[in-house]
Write a protein that binds this DNA or RNA. Structure first.
Length: 558
RNA sequence: GCGCCUGUAGCUCAGUAGGAUAGAGCAACGGCCUUCUAAGCCGUGUGCCAGGGGUUCGAAUCCCUUCAGGCGCACCA
């Protein structure tokens, strides 16, 4: 158990015992015990921990909050605890001041656990599925995918650190309308390259990658497909280009630091009969009906304002239909306890109806959540540039990484919570890369490495390690922030907000830089030097752990 | 029209189940390198927390409402 958790638990027990005692003695009458909540006050004078419990009880007890607080405090037994003193302040806050130097415990924890410091077992034994990006495989990935990729990958890492067995998953939209258009576009380019004078489909994919695919295809296969009918030829072209795109996506994502455990094909849901089974199940449960030749889902029974089509009049299932079958596969066939998807804000309307449909098939939809990521707007020369894949004008993921770098890209896209709107100023990102906060954190790590490199020979092994030499406020502050790391991960997981880790890393780096300027590690006092070396080694380790979650490198030199 | 997200310092954003004097970074100004990396540190200022109501001991935070911006509301995905 980590030090923060130990202390919190202890204080809660003390408060709980005091509450019970006051009730037993008849000093206070409490019918329903309020939830105990400890907070860390902003002001240091208010102690390390604080509770507002006395201010939640006046209604029940008919007593003034200050009186309640006094009664409780009188009944608190702090005997052998971390608590040094308790004060009642303001309208009735009970503030706990800890015995000095409780922070030292964190140094042992980090030294013991090293690369695992911060991990917890909260969700041990549970399977977690995180689906993210899932970009259309009809062309290269763009900048919007870069944000979703960073958010998803880091959220997956966060879940992993809380004990989940995590699967990172990419859903390949290799069925449906856009694949038909993809085929039409490929075929048109093929025929044009073969010298036919035919028009390009109006709503086709106009990017050059389509033409390039067909040039490469012809270079390999010659003109043997020329005499086939378009209907015979399209599946061959689609198969060819799709595989090329997918392997390109895989390698682009690996270069971005993202490795998927599962690439799940939408088409496989058709092939396996999963979709038919799902239709059957929904029908059996009475949630479908036919109208105008289409099969509808009674979404209105699950809070939607209109029903949704599952199977079109032309007999083809909708994307929605496939998505239901897909999530049934996740929850039921593959036994995931929790499934999270990262979607762009333009898909948010889909969330409620999918949750409704999952409920309809008997899945507890509270285990399914979607992180809605607000769209990235691209600013170029101070102007908003719309991104559109179909017109081939989007900034490619790979170009972005080439220009900004993997570390800065991942860090930058995780600086803010997913639901913040985000203007990506391309000119600024490129020219400002030296100013990017990622360097601030990496620099702290490199500084520590540099000190340690120079210290190793000077360290006197015979001097005993004595943490009590660490008394400066910068030292204590640094240790407190180190001690916060495990909680920070738990909160990030609970709130599905991976950007907390990025901000934590910045806070930690700031605490270190302050320490660095206030306290020298290399000092004549050997015992002090030794204690400080342990402190910076712990800091180095936690920076590594945080950057590891972010998928950002921790360089030893800069 | 209905729904989701957003509105906090000049700019970009934090603000942890409603908590005690509202916080960072950037930008501006002034300091700090003859001992560990100045991509750093220290200091200085600025806020009708979009507006208006309400809930209560207490609201940037919760509820209602108005305004502004983004995104949805297909037999597209």
């Amino acid at each position: 158990m980590y030090i923060r958790e130990k202390i919190t638990k202890q204080i809660k027990t003390i408060i709980g015992d005091a509450l019970n005692q006051t009730v037993e003695s008849g000093a206070l009458t409490i019918e329903t015990m309020p939830d105990l909540f400890l907070e860390i006050p902003r002001e240091k004078e208010h102690g390390e921990y604080s509770t507002n419990i006395a201010m939640q009880l006046p209604k029940q007890t008919k007593k003034a909050p200050r009186f309640i607080a006094e009664t409780l405090v009188a009944n608190m037994n702090t005997g052998d605890s971390y608590i040094e003193s308790i004060e009642i302040a303001g309208p009735g806050f009970i503030n706990f001041k800890l015995k000095p130097y409780w922070q030292y415990a964190v140094l042992d924890e980090v030294a013991d656990l090293k690369a695992d410091y911060g991990r917890s077992q909260k969700n041990a034994g549970k399977k977690f599925n995180l689906e993210f990006i899932s970009a259309n495989p009809t062309g290269p990935m763009h900048m919007g995918n870069a944000r979703g990729g960073a958010i998803g990958d880091i959220l997956a890492a966060v879940a992993d650190w809380t004990g989940y067995a995590v699967t990172r998953e990419f859903y390949i939209n290799d069925a449906g309308n856009q694949i038909v258009k993809f085929g039409d576009s490929l075929d048109a380019r093929y025929r044009q390259l073969m010298g036919e004078d035919i028009p390009f489909p109006e709503d086709g994919y106009q990017g050059e990658d389509i033409t390039d695919h067909m040039k490469a295809f012809i270079a390999v296969n010659g003109d043997v497909h020329r005499l086939l009918t378009p209907e015979e030829r399209k599946p061959i072209l689609i198969d060819y280009a799709l595989n090329k795109n997918l392997s390109q996506m895989k390698s682009d994502l690996e270069a971005y630091g993202i490795h998927y455990d599962v690439w799940f094909s939408e088409q496989s849901l058709y092939d396996s009969g999963a979709i038919e089974k799902t239709v059957e199940l929904l029908g059996k449960r009475g949630f479908t009906y036919e109208q105008e030749g289409a099969l509808w889902f009674k979404a209105t029974e699950f809070g939607s304002d209109k029903d949704d089509v599952l199977i079109r009049a032309n007999g083809l299932p909708t994307y929605f239909m496939a998505d239901i079958a897909y999530h049934m596969d996740k929850f039921i066939n593959r036994g995931f306890n929790r499934c999270i998807n990262v979607w762009g804000a333009d898909h948010h309307g889909h969330v409620a109806r999918l949750k409704g449909a999952l409920t309809a098939v008997g899945i507890d939809a509270s285990n399914f959540d979607v992180v809605i990521m607000q769209l990235v707007r691209l600013l170029r020369n101070g102007e908003v540039a719309r991104m559109s894949k179909r017109q081939g004008k989007a900034i490619a993921l790979t170009d972005l990484i080439d220009e900004v770098g993997v570390d800065a890209t991942r860090f930058f896209f995780n600086l803010r919570s997913p639901d913040s709107h985000f203007d990506f100023d391309l000119d600024l990102a490129i020219e400002q890369s030296n100013d990017n906060p990622v360097f601030y954190v990496q620099y702290a790590h490199a500084r520590i490495c540099s000190i340690i490199r120079q210290m190793t020979e000077e360290l006197d092994q015979t001097v005993p390690l004595d943490y009590s030499r660490l008394v400066e406020k910068e030292e204590l502050n640094l240790m407190e922030i180190l001690a916060n790391f495990p909680d920070e991960i738990l909160i990030a997981e609970d709130k599905l907000d991976p950007s907390r880790i990025t901000r934590y890393a910045i806070d930690l780096a700031a605490a270190f830089h302050s320490f660095y300027n206030a306290c020298h590690v290399r000092v004549d006092d050997k015992a002090l030097m030794k204690a400080r070396v342990v402190l910076i080694e712990a800091t180095k380790q936690v920076i590594q752990n945080a950057l590891g979650i972010l998928g950002v490198s921790a360089p030893e030199r800069m």
